[in-house]
Design a protein around this nucleic acid. Structure first.
Lengths: 377, 377
DNA sequence: ACTTATCGTGAATCTTGAT
DNA sequence: GATCAAGATTCACGATAAG
């Protein structure tokens, strides 16, 4: 571990990664480097491979400004066959290191996802779901010749058809979704603003940085605290940052040293959430109605934040999975609101508040914001 | 109309198709039957091929031989291969009958859509979008081991990369969507209630009947009145019913006589919408061309007049020949508009104004006057 | 300080017809 | 087929500037 860390850092001092015992980035080709890992050692794979965009010319907005397209060398392939070979190679290497109970996520767009999915099936992966990431703020279609490309697709698959015992945190997902099963379409904004890594000149470090909200939902739904998560295409380290925050171990593979170093700094700066916000959520068959996790994914409420009632008599801790905690009691916002008051029931939405600069704010107002966005969509 | 309804509902006498001059169903294998159509004759293909990879023992090879039940990896491979052969065969047959400007829609789920998409790319189809049909009322996941499968995927593709002039009714879609361009994710309910075809015993006729709302959006977005639409997997004829209602011609192919007859009755009962509700939307692209010199010829703008931008920052002189002049630069309204702003391009119609008593007037408005005169004539 | 206007930008296979 | 020019075309946010 120390060896590889030193190798990865090249010019950086050895001390730089001391905080990354549990999260590390290996600089090199992911196929070669994954082959050095022991087999059947990984709990979850998240992969954001090159999409093989085949852009012809330049694209301009109606105001004649230039769209900053993905024209990096790492996204260039000579043919579909070359892309397929590349895909088969990294999928096989990933499959070898997966535990029998492990699952894999691969994200892509229509340019590549069909090829990736077919190859996954051919290699024996067993698809569990395809998940649609609906972008709340996609780039429009400037020429009006197609539908706005407003989503990307993720394939979630087990190592093989017979795989048993994969992790799916059904109860926690349901409790944080109005007590309704989580669906295969997720509405999440693009990675913009503060979250987007910029270089000294204010330019984006990586053209395709994924939002942390997306990775948080992936890791919360299909991994457990302490699990080993790997990402063959580390990029700026979104997977690693979220893994660290959520108490998962992480290994990322990245060929580009600039990306790798930016990711190392980013991950080092992440503060893991307190262990109690991540403890497995076991209760909940009778969990009351909640639609709380989206507020967390959108950054409206941070895990670890405190919810209080209007008179600040009670305070509850927000967990990463959308449940809250008061003393040793864990449950939905409704249940814990009831416990706090010693009542049989409580509508948590109209009971709990968050502290803001402008004073207390009812969480129901935050929900209303999301709802108005959803009905607009 | 009365005739046809009676005919269709009887024991299928010869008169059966008399009302269906514009919509008909051909009973037989779609590959064989499509081969009898003239090439390059179809405007739009909609296909809902069988998905049932995992329903073992039901899958047939293109030659009608049964694929053995699949249990081990080799058989799984052979079943994927058989499905791929089947897919390649019908896609090739469909591609042959497509006009160069035609497009094709294929709907599927994660069981088959990745294979279909990869094969489409391999055959030379050019993907325009993948569209997500989000089901507002999906079937829940009973075992709680996966996300609720709440969507299906459609691939929309042109016949080949170079294909020009495909139909995309951008303006109409935008107008019907709060004046915001249509996205790649559509929220549409499942086909239920009255719309769902039932047999005498109240059992659904077909397991995967698609909602008419879905087909309506497909046909309205990518076809025109009078276009020829085909569906290689007619089923209960949703595509044909919607095609008839929307004034499109239709040919459906169906091997199963029970489905075909149910579809015939259904389509015969459809009342086409009044022609005026289907009239094409005159779009800016299709509007007749007007030369700037026509404005001068008609006396709307006098030679020697000055054109200015909305903030009167730039002024150009109108020449008698229809060119304009800024400083020592002479050129078209577009060219000089671009020069004035230091941009590579500019739409002069929406940039330049003339001074009138009532203030500035965009020259595009003058052009609109001429156009309305032209269409009135 | 607060509101409003402007500007920048995001995984994009993004025109058409005449010569 | 290649080249050229007409001319059609954007949504949601966040940051910054202006009022």
């Amino acid at each position: 571990m120390v060896e590889s860390r030193r190798g990865a850092s090249a010019r950086a001092p050895r001390t730089k990664f001391q905080s990354l015992e549990e999260q590390r980035i290996i600089v090199g080709d992911c196929v070669a480097e994954m082959s050095k890992l022991p087999g059947a050692s990984v709990d979850l794979v998240f992969a954001d491979p090159p999409y093989n965009l085949q852009l012809k010319g330049e694209l301009k907005r109606p105001d004649e400004s230039q769209v900053d397209a993905v024209d990096d060398d790492w996204d260039k392939f000579s043919s579909f066959a070359a892309y397929d070979d590349f895909t088969r190679a990294w999928l096989l290497a990933a499959r070898r290191v997966m535990k029998p109970s492990a699952t894999i996520w691969v994200i892509g767009s229509y340019h590549n996802i069909f090829r990736v999915g077919a190859i996954m099936q051919d290699l024996g992966f067993w698809i569990l779901n395809d998940i649609v990431w609906r972008k709340s703020n996609p780039m429009p279609n400037f020429r009006g010749r197609r539908f706005t490309n407003a989503h990307e697709t993720m394939i979630w698959a087990a190592r093989d058809e017979k795989a048993k015992g994969y992790t799916f945190n059904y109860e926690a997902l349901k409790a944080s979704n109005e007590d309704v099963q989580a669906r295969s379409d997720w509405l999440i904004p693009l990675c913009t603003g503060e979250e987007r890594l910029k270089d000294g000149g204010g330019k984006k470090v990586h053209p395709t940085q994924k939002p942390e909200g997306l990775l948080a939902r992936v890791l919360l739904s299909s991994s457990k605290q302490g699990d080993l998560v790997i990402d063959p295409f580390n990029g700026t380290g979104t997977t690693g940052a979220v893994a660290k925050r959520l108490g998962r171990r992480y290994i990322g593979f990245e060929r580009d040293k600039v990306y790798a170093e930016a990711a190392e700094r980013r991950i080092a700066a992440v503060e893991p959430l307190p262990a109690e916000t991540l403890a497995p959520f076991m209760t909940a068959r009778e969990a009351p109605r909640v639609a709380f996790s989206e507020l967390i994914e959108r950054g409206m409420i941070a895990p670890g934040a405190k919810l209080v009632d209007s008179k600040r008599r009670y305070g509850a801790l927000v967990r990463a999975d959308g449940a809250i905690m008061l003393g040793d009691k864990v449950g939905s916002i409704h249940r814990i609101g009831a416990v706090a008051q010693g009542l049989p029931a409580c509508n948590g939405w109209t009971f709990w508040h968050v502290e803001t600069k402008g004073g207390l704010r009812l969480i129901d107002e935050l929900r209303a914001e999301i709802r108005s966005e959803m009905t607009a969509a």
